[in-house]
């Protein structure tokens, strides 16, 4: 009887600990950066970053449900080369003046383990929306040790063909396959 009570107590405590993070979160732009990589003329893998990202997450680790809504400012692309960045913002690539944001909105979230999720959703680049799958790993929730605020963080990655979104400039020299790796941190609302 005593051991049953201990198990029950343990279950209730763990349930409430997890449920404490079953909420909506706002992405921390200072700790959320999408990095992209693409083949350059067959010689190397070129990497770059988007400096401004925002969005909302909902996550319920107990019920294994959630949603992801990420917005990336296309003009914030950075490859450590001013003229190349300007070219990447132009209509040859991202057309950032006309399509200022790149968005990902989830439609289905599947927990594959306690710390990994497969997120299926719609990726929109230059006004073209295509389905994409975001692989989320290393989900960790807890209190930030410095400001004590509850937060969650994870790593994520996806890949797609840029030509599917109408980004055909420089093909096939500049690779078609584009990979994006995210580091995401979000504070509980």
């Amino acid at each position: 009887m005593r051991s049953l009570l201990i198990v029950l107590f343990g279950f209730i405590v763990s349930h409430f600990t997890v449920s404490a993070y079953a909420a909506s979160y706002t992405i921390d732009p200072a700790h959320t950066y999408p990095y992209f990589e693409i083949n350059h003329l067959g010689f190397s893998t070129m990497r770059g970053r988007f400096d401004k990202t925002s969005g909302k997450l909902t996550m319920d680790l107990a019920k294994k449900t959630g949603s992801v809504d990420i917005t990336i400012e296309a003009a914030s692309i950075s490859t450590a080369h001013a003229k190349r960045d300007k070219h990447l913002r132009s209509p040859d690539f991202l057309n950032a003046a006309e399509y200022p944001t790149i968005t990902f909105k989830s439609s289905k979230v599947t927990f594959t383990s306690d710390t990994t999720i497969t997120v299926v959703g719609d990726l929109t680049i230059t006004g073209v929306t295509k389905p994409a799958t975001l692989m989320v790993t290393n989900i960790v929730c807890g209190n930030n040790p410095y400001n004590k605020k509850p937060q969650c963080g994870f790593d994520a990655h996806t890949s797609f063909k840029r030509s599917d979104f109408g980004l055909k400039y420089g093909l096939p020299g500049i690779g078609d396959e584009m990979k994006i790796n995210f580091e995401v941190e979000a504070y509980k609302d």
């Binding site: 300007k86 913002r89 132009s90 209509p91």
Partner: peptide, 8 residues
């Protein structure tokens, strides 16, 4: 003009 507006 489009080059000016869309591509700086």
């Amino acid at each position: 003009m489009a080059t000016l507006v869309f591509a700086d």
